[in-house]
Nucleic acid binder design. Structure first.
Length: 489
RNA sequence: GGCCCUAUCGUCUAGUGGCCUAGGACGCCGCCCUCUCACGGCGGUAACACGGGUUCGACUCCCGUUGGGGCUACCA
């Protein structure tokens, strides 16, 4: 049977470099063994999934050059490849589980579940569902449903004994069943959770090797149980170490730019970023760290992946990117790349209208638009303080704005404007006074092209990064301050 | 708190019992090249978390401690 791997991102935000890393490993493994690599969109969270995010994910992976053999855009023999289009499968298999007595309907309220959790925690017992609805008879269940009481479907988990998970990198991992929760498989809205959808789809799509982030280790027993209940062969499992912040915590956008597209906006070449990620899984041949995709496929081996979570430190990426720029491109190719970077998707057409009324000579454009062609800005803290806000209010404003921006479902000019107006409200300052330091932080100057449009065009990631730098220049904010300032947002 | 994963220079790593007085790369420092700056060349700085075992011999195997991380949702 041929090797089949997949990357299964959830379209709930900006495509993450961690996704790129996991995708790369899955890609390399599949290609190394002459198999297929698929892309599946896991959008069973109907509230948070967005089409924009899905589009961005495809664009980001395409940009990196990781092409998939089957996926929502290219189709394939095991489609559809978008979970929101596969509901009948999940309903059917959940029904099978229910009929066989491997799952049960649960009518508990969130309040009751929360109370159980609190109690378990206090008693130092493993948290999890207490089995309350296990004893509900079919007749009772039918009555409750008829009365319109909403329910979920939970997985029945043995209360005794243990299970051994075999990880390709870590060997056997033993779990006591008593520590495994009776997970929800079908939510009250009728949609499956990750656990059910993932197992059903991996089986139906013929996935042979599941390579995913380390964060999934603790749910592996539930998945193993599902495969057993269904009588399906279990794919090989391989849990990859998580990319980390400098402080070793799981890579997060609060501490680091994490968006793949941010790195494109910053002017990294896709092959350099890919190469940088590959260094975590492919040993350099004869000490040469610059590798193209085919070379990576040849040299790749899961046994080369170090289990210690690597810090995503882009210093080396800078060096690698420099080498690609000066060694791998001739003058014509370099020029083409610059053009592509600077002018893609009608970039000029979007920014020129902002500048037109503000210039007298075309040569004024250079200064006025420089920040659209820059990455991080070296802002002068004195310029940030020139307005009417004191240092504390400034820092508060940046922190609050950052939190509001992160919470926006859509990155549009009106939503950005609303956020900034909100900051003015909260800090009790005039909008014009609040806006000024943002001009400095984002565009580098208090006299510039319109702020909200600039932010929208630059993208959320780069805006977050420039705000982060500005905040740092003002002395930063302790986590306590941040917590206090964000309270009640 | 509970369960699980993990531990070599600041960072990414090589190392699978003797080849290790631990190798490479990035960063940093110094020197050279040079109209500046880069690039490039040369050199330097710097690590096996700790404690027990196993063994003739442990960076490598086992146990413990400590540190780090993940999970602990009707999110994935």
């Amino acid at each position: 049977m041929s090797v089949r791997t997949r990357i299964a991102p959830s379209p709930t935000g900006d495509p993450h470099v961690g996704t790129a890393y996991v995708a790369l490993v899955n890609y390399l493994f599949a290609k190394k063994h002459g198999g297929q690599f698929l892309l599946r969109i896991e959008d069973t969270d109907r509230a948070r999934s967005t089409p924009e995010s899905e589009r961005a994910i495809l664009e980001a992976l395409e940009w990196l050059g990781l092409s998939w053999d089957e996926g929502p855009d290219v189709g394939g023999p095991h489609g559809p490849y978008r979970q929101s289009e596969r509901l009948p499968f999940y309903t059917r298999y959940a029904g099978e589980l229910l009929a066989a007595g491997h799952a049960f309907k649960c009518f508990c309220t969130p309040e009751r579940l929360e109370a159980v959790r609190v109690e378990q925690r206090q008693a130092s017992r493993p948290p999890g569902y207490d089995g309350h609805c296990l004893t509900v008879s079919p007749a009772e269940a039918a009555a409750l449903e008829a009365a319109g009481v909403s329910h979920v479907v939970r997985l029945k988990v043995p209360r005794e004994g243990s299970v051994t998970i075999d990880d390709m990198l870590r060997g056997p991992i033993v779990f006591e069943w008593s520590t495994v929760d009776m997970q929800v498989l079908v939510k009250s809205d009728g949609w499956p959770t990750y656990h059910l959808a993932n197992v059903v789809d991996d089986h139906l799509m013929g996935i042979t090797h599941v390579m995913r982030g380390e964060e999934w280790i603790s749910s592996a027993p539930k998945h193993a149980l599902l495969y057993e209940y269904f009588g399906w062969p279990m794919p090989k499992l391989c849990h990859l170490p998580l990319l980390r912040n400098a402080d070793k915590s799981k890579l997060s956008k609060r501490k680091n730019p994490t968006g793949i597209l941010f790195y494109r906006r910053m002017g990294y070449l896709p092959e350099a970023l890919l190469n940088f990620l590959a260094l975590l899984a492919v040993p350099p041949i004869d000490g040469e760290e610059v590798m193209d995709l085919p070379t990576m496929v040849g040299a790749f081996g899961v046994e080369h992946i170090s289990l210690g979570g690597p810090v995503f430190d882009t210093t080396k990426l800078d060096w690698l990117n420099g080498r690609y720029l000066r060694e791998k491109l001739d003058d014509a190719a370099f020029e083409a790349r610059v053009r592509e970077w600077a002018l893609r998707d009608g970039y000029l057409e979007r920014i020129l209208p902002l500048a037109r009324s503000r210039i007298e000579r075309l040569s004024d454009l250079g200064q006025l638009l420089a920040h659209f062609f820059s990455g991080r800005l070296d802002v002068d803290p004195e310029k940030l303080r020139e307005g009417k806000l004191d240092n504390e209010t400034l820092r508060r404003a940046f922190v609050i704005a950052g939190a509001l921006f992160d919470a926006l479902p859509e990155w549009t000019v009106p939503s950005i404007e609303a956020s900034i107006r909100r900051v003015a409200e909260i800090t009790g300052a005039k909008l014009r006074d609040v806006v000024r330091p943002f001009y400095v932080a984002i565009t580098g100057s208090a006299q510039s092209v319109p702020l909200f449009d600039s932010m929208q065009i630059l993208g959320r990631d780069l805006v977050r990064e420039r705000l982060r730098i500005a905040l740092e220049r003002l002395g930063g904010a302790t986590s306590k301050e941040q917590e206090a300032w964000k309270k009640g947002l």
